[in-house]
């Protein structure tokens, strides 16, 4: 009978271990404290703050597919842009400007596009997949350029008019309303992403990233699993795009550009992939640096970000957060 008892004890320990993997750590409160504090401390920077929050949502969506499932893409702006145009056109052409539902519509458009394109593209790997994602996003951009009647083409989509949030909070010049709105959306997206990566589904993505052959071997429908997370990620990117369209009341082809796909990738890698908070750190650091340095000299900023990227790839491949972890581990190892 001792064996059974041991077994029970083992099970309890195993459950504690699994629960520990997804337990909250006190440091996870930090970004939210910072975000709320920023609202009061930097009231003049809330417009920038809103754009940072949107960028974090977008980078978070990329982390789901890149950091967890290992899908490398150069075209993630396709879904951001689809969401932005979806939300924008809903208002500009159909006159629907209720912000929450319009943003959700953006997420829906992104998700549908993600599902359809993912179904086709995710059968490919490596350089072919890189090229396909890149070409898909640019094709969409050229399509938006050609469909001038609907998208405004090169001149951008004008005539977006968004109603007050919840019927009472007007769009304000300082961006208070949208900062709060974006922060709530980010919180919800983050909670969803956290839930997803800590589910058995999320574990299977890590398995696919780590060893896809073995996942076939345990009966995982790999393609379906990848399409599922790609769709979720695209929907989240679409939400970010929808928020972007609403907060700017203007959408240009730029939302679909290669530069945007590249930037979000850089942000995520700077912060660190596969850890959710990398998106927070990367997007915030990137956009604050850009705001400060590009004012001084755009060339200096561009050169700097290029150099930083090279250095990160060569020496700090795990990004800012990962390197912080390594540093801590080393100092603890040295102390012991």
């Amino acid at each position: 009978m001792t064996e059974l008892l041991d077994n029970g004890g083992g099970s309890a320990a195993a459950r504690r271990f699994m629960a520990g993997r997804e337990a909250w750590h006190w440091a996870e409160a930090l970004p939210w404290v910072v975000a709320v504090a920023a609202f009061f401390v930097f009231p003049d920077y809330l417009a920038l703050g809103t754009q940072i929050l949107i960028a974090i949502i977008f980078a978070l969506s990329l982390d789901l597919i890149l950091g967890y499932a290992g899908i490398i893409t150069l075209g993630h702006a396709a879904y951001f842009g689809a969401g932005a145009y979806g939300t924008g056109m809903l208002s500009a052409h159909l006159g629907w400007g209720e912000p929450i539902s319009a943003m959700l519509f953006g997420g829906f458009v992104g998700g549908v596009l993600g599902f359809v394109s993912g179904w086709v593209l995710l059968r490919y790997h490596g350089l072919t997949l890189l090229m396909l994602t890149l070409a898909t996003a640019i094709m969409l951009k050229e399509g938006a350029n050609a469909a001038e009647e609907w998208t405004g083409g090169f001149d951008g989509l004008v005539g977006i008019s968004i109603w007050p949030l919840l019927g009472s909070f007007e769009y304000d010049l300082w961006g208070k309303t949208y900062y709060c709105f974006a922060l709530v959306v980010l919180l919800l997206c983050f909670l969803a992403a956290r839930r997803i990566v800590h589910s058995a589904f999320g574990r299977s993505l890590v398995g696919i990233k780590g060893n896809v052959g073995r996942m076939h071997g345990v009966g995982t429908p790999v393609h379906g699993r990848l399409v599922a997370v790609y769709t979720l990620s695209a929907a989240m990117a679409g939400l970010a795009g929808g928020l972007f369209a609403e907060s700017n009341a203007y959408v240009t082809l730029d939302v679909l550009s290669f530069a945007r796909s590249g930037t979000v990738l850089i942000m995520l890698v700077l912060g660190g992939t596969g850890r959710l908070y990398g998106a927070f750190v990367g997007a915030a650091v990137y956009m604050i640096l850009e705001d400060e340095l590009a004012k001084l000299s755009p060339e200096f900023w561009e050169f700097g970000i290029g150099l930083l990227l090279v250095i990160v790839v060569l020496f700090f491949r795990r990004g800012l957060l990962g390197s912080l972890d390594d540093l801590r581990a080393r100092s603890m190892g040295g102390g012991a």
């Binding site: 800590h198 058995a200 589904f201």
Partner: peptide, 21 residues
């Protein structure tokens, strides 16, 4: 657990915590 979750069909569920299985 990855293998077992796959067999019993738990791995398709992206909302349920892994530790709750």
């Amino acid at each position: 657990a990855i293998s077992i979750a796959e067999r019993v069909g738990a791995a398709g569920n992206f909302w349920r915590r892994a530790s709750a299985n």
